Simulated scan of single mutants.
Amino acid sequence: MLITACAAGCAAEPAAAPDSPAPLTAVSALGDFGTLDYCSLLDTTRLARSTVATPDSSFTGCQADFVQNGRQGSVTVGPLAADRDPNIQPYAYAGRLPDGITVQQSNFAPAETCARTITFAEGTRLSVTLSGGDADQRCARTDTVVDGVMTALTGGRVRHARFPDRSWGRVDACALLQSHDLDAASGADTQTAGGMTGHSCIRGKVSVDFAVVKQAPTGPAETLGGRNARVTSDGAFCRARAVQPSPATAGRAEQITVSVVDTTGSGGDAACPAARAAAEAVFAKIP
Score class of each variant (00 low, 15 high):
Gln178Asn: 15
Val260Cys: 12
Pro220Ser: 12
Ala152Trp: 08
Phe120Lys: 01
Leu36Phe: 03
Asp43Arg: 04
Gln104Ile: 00
Leu182Gly: 09
Val213Tyr: 04
Val146Ala: 13
Val258Asp: 03
Asp136Lys: 11
Thr35Ala: 12
Ile286Ser: 09
Leu130Phe: 00
Asp269Pro: 09
Gln215Ser: 14
Ala82Lys: 14
Ala8Pro: 02
Gly70Ala: 03
Leu36Asp: 07
Ile118Val: 15
Ala48Leu: 15
Ser246Gln: 08
Asp209Tyr: 12
Leu130Gln: 03
Thr4Cys: 01
Leu41Ile: 09
Ala22Thr: 12
Ala140Tyr: 00
Ala26Arg: 05
Pro247Tyr: 01
Leu2Tyr: 09
Ser259Gly: 02
Glu254Tyr: 05
Pro217Gln: 13
Val103Met: 14
Ala22Trp: 06
Pro18His: 10
Asp19Asn: 10
Gln178Leu: 15
Asp269Lys: 12
Gly132Lys: 00
Ala211Asn: 09
Ala248Pro: 02
Ser186Tyr: 00
Thr51Glu: 14
Pro110Ala: 08
Arg252Asp: 07
Val67Ala: 13
Cys201His: 00
Lys214His: 02
Ala173Cys: 03
Thr263Gln: 08
Asp99Glu: 08
Arg116Asp: 13
Val206Gly: 12
Ser106Val: 07
Arg239Tyr: 05
Pro14Val: 11
Thr154His: 04
Asn87Glu: 05
Cys6Arg: 06
Gly31Asp: 10
Gln215Gly: 06
Asp209Glu: 10
Pro217Tyr: 03
Arg157Pro: 00
Ser266Arg: 15
Thr54Cys: 04
Pro90Cys: 08
Ala173Gly: 03
